[in-house]
Computed example of a mutant assay.
Amino acid sequence: MRDLKKWILNDLMNEEAEEQINASRYERNSNRKDYRNGYKQRSLLTTDGKVILDKPQFRETSFHTAVFDNYSRVEKSVESIILESYLSGVSTRSVNKVIKSLGIEVSPSYVSSLSSRLDKTVNEFLERKIDGEYKFIYIDGTYLKIRNNGRYRNKAIYICVGINSDGYREVLGARIYDSETEIEWELFFDDLKDRGLNGVEMVISDGNKGIREAVKQSFPGSSWQYCHVHFMRNLRKSTGKQQWKFLSLLIKQALDNPDILPLLQDKLFDRGLDKCSTMFDKYYDSLYNYRSFNTNIQGLRRLRVSNTIERLNAEIKRRTKKIGAFPSDDSAMRLAGSIMIDINEEYVTGRKYINMEEINSQ
Score class of each variant (00 low, 15 high):
A254G: 11
L263E: 07
N234K: 09
L247S: 01
L264C: 09
D259S: 13
D266E: 11
L273H: 01
F231P: 03
E213C: 08
R233E: 15
L249K: 15
H228V: 10
P220E: 00
G272N: 12
Q253I: 03
P258V: 08
T239K: 08
W244R: 03
D270G: 00
Q225N: 15
Q225Y: 13
R233N: 15
R236Y: 06
L263R: 14
K267P: 07
L268M: 12
D270L: 06
Q225F: 12
L261G: 00
H230S: 15
Y226W: 11
N234M: 13
L247K: 02
M232Q: 13
L255T: 07
I251H: 00
R271C: 05
G272I: 11
N257V: 05
F231Y: 05
D256V: 05
G272W: 09
F219S: 03
F231L: 07
D256I: 02
L235G: 03
N234R: 09
F246L: 10
R236A: 08
S218D: 04
L273C: 03
C227H: 09
F231A: 02
K267T: 03
K245A: 15
A254D: 05
G240T: 14
D259A: 12
L235F: 08
L261W: 00
E213P: 01
A254L: 11
Y226I: 11
K245F: 08
L250H: 07
S222G: 11
A254C: 13
R271F: 01
A254H: 06
A254S: 15
L268Q: 11
V229G: 08
G221N: 14
R236H: 11
S222N: 14
Q242R: 15
D259F: 06
Q242Y: 06
F269G: 03
K241H: 12
H230I: 13
G240V: 14
G240I: 14
K241I: 11
N234C: 14
